[in-house]
Amino acid sequence: MTQGTTDRSFFTHNAAELAKQVQDGEVRAVARVISLLENRDPIGAAVLTHLSPSMNRAFVIGITGYPGTGKSTLIDQLIIAYRRLGQKVGVLAVDTSSPVTGGAVLGDRIRMQRHTDDPQVYIRSMATRGHQGGLAAATRQAIRVLEGAAYGVILIETVGVGQNELDVMHVVHTVVAVVAPGLGDDIQAMKAGLLEIADIVVVNKGDREGADATLRDLREWCKTVIRTVAVKGEGIAGLIAVIAEHERWRDLDSPELHKRRGLSIDLGTRAG
């Protein structure tokens, strides 16, 4: 028996109506419009043109870094922190599609599943579908959909990158690069690429052997380096503080905008 084929009334092919539903914060509409954009359906692009005029301005943070350094766990912690600041949080987590079959196992959100019970948090997994550069082709458009639905903070998790998948720098305001101890010497810290585009470098798993040396090496070359132990929530307040500081510099032209974003917290909580 085929169940529920009658239950599609929410879904309209009318772009203006879909845009309205997105702006009302209807999660099914947000999710469906992102699918339309991923599938290059012209209705998706039409929805974006309806969203543009009243576009809210979100704060978009990119979390990038080598595979297995703890990007998803760090995002889980950032969600907690931004929810405490009263922000509505959207997450776009990108994982790799198979170049052979086009299939994918999208598992980033496993680390974030506790937030599914929070209606102010939206998490979406995106497969790269052959797109190079660390993001999906539709990631930038998906950000605009989430902005349209009034998500104030949008966290973008790239695929686990090498040194040369740097698209994220073009779509976010603040790039956070995550590394783990023991992945190379001070010469690695000098190289062009990932660490060069990072506004903030996070040494996660910062309680592991070699973390002190990694921090020391990176601090010679990168302006802002933070130690975290994401699984224990350590160092997150410090990270939030430097992200807010970075954003304050970007917003210097518009103090009003900065205030409206509501990202600042007491810098007294900042940890090393």
Partner: peptide, 12 residues
């Protein structure tokens, strides 16, 4: 299913 070209969202 991944090998069959499906995008799997795995929740754990």
């Amino acid at each position: 299913l991944r090998d069959a070209g499906v995008e799997i969202i795995y929740t754990g």
